[in-house]
């Protein structure tokens, strides 16, 4: 097992190199650069084009260098924890990410928890009561959840909050709490709003999870070992939970690793609409103004999380399923 993990980690190294290249390609694909976008927006607002300042920035960040030099300048800093600079804020990318990552991870993990807590029992119920009214109802609402675009649901909830309760649900807390130290009041404020992204993103993933759990349960309930357990006189509820669900959940557990990248990319669009202090909106802004190192770093991190997640999945699967052994 340990050998296996080491081997897998070693294989990941060339993959990660490849990922940095792809991420860099994606962000250098648009014509022009941050400076051009910046100058254009200055011009639009009637501001003076400070040609000299622009040249200075260009020189400082090496924006006129060939692409491969820029790439090298970017990755060179990785071993030292340097991911480049955020042009628009004039500070290191790593700072921005460090500031927003905790919120991103918090919201995403709560979302996953929410999805699982509801989807697993519903999936089990739907399988056991296949084709019952309840099964159809859950199927319907599950699909409704996937079918509503996240941004739309976010808007609708905010609209309702504003119209019927007079509360502004955007952001994670009122602006004045930003940067304040954590206290009970601040936590209350966050608690009041954090459910919005959780529901918005959670409902989108719910149906998929329900479907998988239901399908796996149906598969397991057909297995001979289920009849065997019943023939021993094991109670039906125990047959369902201890026997069928115990195995049906294995493939889902193995997808926990796959959920890791979703920690960053899952709530991106909802985050933008809701104005959350997460990485999604930052990526959006960065892409819009071609703040390339920030955008590239966020994209790169989300891809790397997939790799780590896959490894994690395989390890988890080996833990929950005694049949699987890696050597």
């Amino acid at each position: 097992m340990v050998n296996y993990i080491i081997r897998r980690t070693l294989i990941m190294i060339p993959m990660i190199v490849f990922i940095t290249i792809v991420s860099f390609l994606i962000i250098t694909l648009p014509p022009g650069s941050y400076i051009d976008t910046y100058l254009a927006s200055l011009q639009r607002m009637g501001g003076q084009v400070e040609q000299e300042r622009a040249e200075a920035i260009k020189a400082r960040y090496g924006l006129d260098d060939p692409v491969y030099v820029q790439y090298w300048n970017w990755v060179r800093g990785f071993p030292y924890g340097r991911l480049g600079m955020v042009f628009s804020e004039d500070r290191p990318v790593i700072d921005v990410i460090a500031e927003r990552l905790p919120y991103t991870v918090l919201i995403s993990s709560l979302t996953l928890l929410f999805t699982w807590i509801f989807a697993i029992p519903i999936g089990i119920y739907s399988a056991v009561k296949q084709y019952s009214a309840g099964d159809y109802l859950f199927t319907f609402f599950g699909f409704l959840g996937v079918s509503i675009p996240n941004f739309l649901l976010a808007l609708v909830i905010m609209f309702m909050g504003l119209r019927y309760f007079g509360v502004n649900l955007s952001g994670l807390m009122p602006a004045r709490y930003m940067g304040e130290p954590w206290n009970l009041e601040k936590i209350m404020q966050v608690a009041q709003r954090i459910w919005v992204p959780i529901i918005v993103v959670g409902t989108a993933g719910m149906a998929g999870l329900i479907r998988v759990m239901r399908g796996e349960m149906l598969d397991q309930l057909r297995q001979p070992y289920i009849q065997m357990a019943r023939s021993k006189g094991v109670s039906e509820i125990k047959v369902i939970i201890k026997y069928a669900a115990r195995i049906a959940i294995n493939p889902l557990i193995s997808t926990i690793g796959w959920l890791l990248p979703q920690l960053i990319s899952g709530g991106m669009i909802a985050g933008i609409v809701l104005g959350l202090p997460t990485l999604g909106p930052k990526l959006y802004d960065a892409l819009m103004i071609q703040d390339m190192y920030l955008a590239g770093s966020i994209i790169m991190i989300s891809i790397i999380l997939v790799l780590v997640g896959t490894l994690l999945s395989d390890i988890l699967l080996a833990i929950v399923d005694p049949r699987i052994r890696y050597d």
């Binding site: 993959m15 490849f18 990922i19 792809v22 994606i26 962000i27 694909l29 648009p30 014509p31 990248p261 979703q262 960053i264 990319s265 991106m268 669009i269 990526l283 959006y284 892409l287 819009m288 071609q290 955008a295 966020i298 994209i299 989300s302 891809i303 997939v306 790799l307 896959t310």
Partner: peptide, 19 residues
């Protein structure tokens, strides 16, 4: 590898790249 690329950031990145 293609599966490993998260959809939304990729779409956003490429979408932003359209002239």
């Amino acid at each position: 590898f293609t599966l490993a690329i998260p959809k939304i950031p990729l779409w956003m990145g490429l979408g932003a790249a359209l002239p």
